[in-house]
């Protein structure tokens, strides 16, 4: 008990250790409860052909990414060149979920706008953005009111979900994909799921 005076010092180091670890965490990244759960099914209009729909089960048998984007989303612009490069290298199929294209844009006032008009405007805006910046997606679907986004637990754009061959969500990337996160996290997981499947 001679080293009793060391106790406060040790307590301090313990606390400092916890705080230092806390500094490395990002409080904006809320862990998703959907990991390893079946991805919520949806059936939404396609941007290339709004008369036809795309359903989640159509990607069954493939390991793929669901990338949530919108033309008003600034961070999407940042990750987009990487998505285009991924598409060119045929790394992994990416389906785009266009999230609240019109009503998510703070610069637009869409109160009282009819759903048909809003959908038409969303298609026009999304197509324009894809032709300006390149279209890396297998296809993109329209989530006009953000309901599917809520089902996926989306709380910010961009977000990217890694979905396995059985339609389960295996990983969620919050924020823009960076070359580092692609090489070190996403692609290793894709390879692993492909080997397993």
């Amino acid at each position: 008990m001679k080293a009793k005076f060391l106790v406060p010092l040790l307590l301090f180091f313990g606390l400092a250790g916890f705080l230092a670890f806390g500094l490395t965490l990002n409080p904006r990244e809320v862990p998703s409860p959907l990991i390893d759960k079946p991805a919520p099914n949806f059936k939404l209009a396609r941007i290339d052909d709004p008369a036809s729909t795309f359903a989640l089960e159509e990607m069954r048998g493939q390991v793929w990414l669901l990338n949530v984007w919108a033309s008003w989303c600034v961070a999407c612009r940042q990750e987009h060149p990487l998505l285009v490069r991924m598409a060119r290298q045929k790394l992994v199929p990416v389906v785009g979920l266009n999230y609240k294209e019109v009503r998510g844009d703070g610069a637009l006032n869409v109160r009282g706008m009819a759903l048909e008009a809003e959908t038409a405007l969303a298609v026009e805006r999304a197509r324009g953005w894809l032709s300006d910046h390149g279209d890396p997606y297998v296809l993109s679907v329209l989530d006009v009111d953000g309901r599917v986004g809520i089902d996926f637990g989306v709380y910010g754009v961009p977000e990217t979900f890694l979905i396995d061959a059985e339609g389960r969500i295996r990983y969620k990337h919050i924020g823009p994909i960076t070359p580092d996160s692609l090489q070190q996290v996403i692609m290793p997981k894709v390879e692993e799921l492909r080997r397993a499947g």
Binding site: V30, P31, S32, P33, L34, F152, G153, Y155
Partner: peptide, 8 residues
């Protein structure tokens, strides 16, 4: 909501 966003 918890099923989608977690206990957070």
């Amino acid at each position: 909501l918890v099923a989608r966003y977690g206990d957070f």
